[in-house]
Simulated assay, not measured.
Amino acid sequence: MTWAWPVLLVLGLALADPVSRRLAAAEWPHRDPVGALLLWQAVGLAGGLALLGAGVTAALAPLGDGLWDAAHAVLDGRLGELDAWRWVVLAVTVLVAARLLGVLAVVGLRTLRARRKHRDLLDVLATPWPAAPGALVLDYPVPVAYCLPGPRSRVVVSRGALTTLAETELSAVLAHEHAHLRERHDLVVLPFVAWGATVHGVPGLTAAQRAVATLIEMRADDVAAAEVGDEALARALRAVGSGAEDAAHTAFTAATEQRLARVRHRPQPLPFLARVAVRLVAVLLIAVPTALLL
């Protein structure tokens, strides 16, 4: 275990910033959003395992090679063999892990509470849309559509969207929002929000959160395009985006422009072997720190 913790530390630091920044700036994820999202999840999980594992393995190194040996040593009452600095490292690691889990719990609870209030408000203000079971119509003149995830999920479209969008464009909007709900994209983003709130000022973590948020939109766009085609999706994106622009008195966000350009000039999917390689790398990223820890 004496050599494992430096490797874990270097791996964790590399994944937290330079790797995350370069992956966020890469163009190939736009050609394979599903694979890129899987890789991002692996980066986040492997980075957490590596950084926290480095602290644990450094602290418990005198107790054996691997966490199994260390666990047996703890049960045998050998914690007294640890030096003072190792106790400090262990305490810091436990505090960081506790903060990360605490932030994750707080963010999750706040999100659930906000969604519950939002659902209650929609039940009062919105009306069911007969043409789309489970969808609600909000009496608002600007074209807007969004989903509210959870056990009692909602898809909401504004009255402005119904009067502005054609039937195929509305189908694109519904397919996009249902993809978010079905694939639980809200949970995909949550770990990166927790990491960003736990460790401040790391450019790689900020870039990761933005990149994942953009990729889930691209993934939902792909689902919608498969159902209604790129042209109808592009019209829907522009109509809903223009409505949001008028409402907020701001220009398109960079992410929306990027999505619209991608839909209009559809990039070639990654070759089959490249897609397989991305998924293998994701598995290896998780396997390496796990093996070093055990």
Rank of each mutant, 00 (worst) to 15 (best):
T57W: 02
L45H: 06
V137E: 08
A91N: 06
L37D: 01
L294G: 12
S20R: 11
R159Y: 07
T2M: 08
L100Q: 03
R22Y: 01
L136R: 13
G47R: 13
A26N: 06
L79D: 05
A84E: 09
L100M: 08
E231I: 02
T256S: 12
L82A: 02
L79I: 13
L13R: 05
R238M: 00
H176Q: 02
T214E: 14
D76C: 00
V106H: 05
T206S: 12
V43I: 15
R86F: 00
L215G: 03
L23E: 00
D120F: 00
L293A: 06
G108T: 11
G66R: 07
G102I: 03
L136D: 07
L148T: 15
P18Q: 09
W87F: 03
A131H: 15
L187E: 07
V278W: 00
F252L: 13
W87K: 11
G77L: 06
E27V: 09
P143F: 05
F192D: 06
V228D: 07
V19F: 06
G102F: 06
L284G: 08
V202M: 05
W85N: 01
L125Y: 03
E245R: 15
T198N: 00
R259H: 04
L215W: 08
G66A: 00
G108A: 10
V157L: 13
Y146T: 07
A161I: 05
E183F: 03
W85I: 01
D139Q: 05
A126T: 13
E27L: 08
A236K: 12
G160A: 04
R22M: 07
V173L: 11
L121W: 01
L260V: 13
Q209I: 04
A58N: 01
A16H: 10
V106E: 03
G204L: 10
D246S: 13
V156I: 11
P269W: 01
A36K: 09
L280N: 00
V56D: 00
A247T: 06
E227S: 11
